[in-house]
Amino acid sequence: MKRSYLPVALLLAVLMLNIIFTQYMVHQYFYENYTNTIIAAVINVILFPVAFLIYKKGVNVHD
């Protein structure tokens, strides 16, 4: 069966978001906007299970 590279692309997108939110989080921390810091941190944490789900779905189907 032809393997799908869609999950790989999705995971790369997730990682890109991780980078963006990490930078946002650090900056907001130093600008003392602590609510924004917490929001970015929560998003970063949520992105991990999302990445794991993408992996689970993508790895079984076409490999």
Partner: peptide, 13 residues
């Protein structure tokens, strides 16, 4: 990639 996402998550805490 999933591992890297995990590292990001943990280091956000």
């Amino acid at each position: 990639l999933v591992g890297a996402a995990g590292v990001f998550a943990v280091s956000s805490l």
